[in-house]
Amino acid sequence: MGKLRYICFLVFMLIWQVSISQITHPKMSPFSSVKQEIGLVTITIDYSRPSARGRNIVGDLMPYDRIWRVGANESTKFTTSHDITIGEHLLKKGTYVLYAIPHKEYWEVIFHTNLTHWGDGRTDYKPQEDAFRIQIKPEKTADFQETFLITLNHLDHNSGIMEWIWEHTKVSIPIKVDTHEMMLGRIKTLLKDNPTAMSYYQAARYYQEQDHDLIKALKWLDKAETLGGRTYYIHRIRSLVLEKKKDYKNAIKEAKASLKIADSLGKDEFVRMNQKNIEKLQKLL
């Protein structure tokens, strides 16, 4: 028993010594992750953020004409949930490494398929493993960015801009997504089997927002009302569809119906929206 206790004691001391010897240090370039929806696409960027700390960056710490990892530590990963377009290039859904080669007049932005390289992969990097490269002219910024930043900005249903910002330099990479075709496919599936009133309403609302096949949108609103009854939001969207068709008289009628139901339910926001729209439509008669 004494021998067994001694062995257990030795094992415990060994584990304890190993645990205290492995100190986790804070990173000079901390990890960050950006997750952003563009339309129905989700884009995730995992990278580490170095800081200038008084150093000259572009052309010095980040030399011209040499590959850069777009951050620090491990290679920067770019993941898209669906096919997208970068510049004029199709990028299939999946994960890629972001690299860049800064030049004095322009930058080469690289989407690379080999995910195994650590850092910039200079010794093992092979250009033939690039998905593609695009050339981007960098911008000079008035404000100084101390810590390297990747952000997705200027967003709408169909596009966004990935921005890399450090020191007084910003590189903007355009992203396009085909939200409309994706939505048409989803609507087709949604309305295929036992659609509900809400299914028809959501489909009609999207068509109204995109100014797409307004006659079909009105038919779907009728079906939504048949299945779910009169609602302030069905009347609201029908009013907006009729406005786009320049049927201002019936658009006002539908807006008033929406306002009345919304008022009875205490939906003040919809009351105000309908009042404002009625005033606008009356001027168009």
Rank of each mutant, 00 (worst) to 15 (best):
M1W: 00
R5K: 15
Y6S: 13
Y6I: 07
Y6N: 14
I7A: 12
F9A: 14
F12M: 10
L14R: 03
W16Y: 15
W16Q: 11
Q17L: 13
I20C: 05
I23H: 03
M28R: 06
S32M: 02
V34S: 08
E37G: 06
G39C: 03
T42M: 07
T42Q: 11
N56T: 07
M62T: 07
W68S: 05
V70H: 01
E74H: 07
E74Q: 14
T76K: 10
K77E: 07
G87D: 08
E88T: 15
E88Y: 09
L90F: 04
L90V: 14
K92G: 04
K92R: 09
K93T: 05
G94F: 08
T95C: 04
Y96G: 01
A100P: 06
F111W: 15
H112K: 07
L115Y: 10
W118S: 07
G121E: 09
Y125M: 01
F132E: 03
R133D: 10
R133C: 12
Q135I: 05
I136S: 00
K137Y: 05
K137S: 10
K137D: 05
D143Y: 03
F144M: 04
T147N: 09
F148P: 00
I150H: 01
T151G: 02
H154F: 12
D156Q: 07
H157I: 03
G160Q: 05
E163S: 11
E167V: 00
H168L: 03
V171C: 04
M183D: 07
L184F: 08
L184D: 10
G185I: 02
I187F: 00
K188P: 01
D193I: 13
N194L: 07
T196S: 15
E209K: 15
L214K: 03
K219Y: 09
W220T: 07
E225F: 10
T226I: 06
Y233S: 04
L240R: 11
L240K: 11
V241F: 14
K244R: 12
A257S: 11
D263T: 12
R272M: 04
N274S: 15
K276N: 12
E279Q: 14
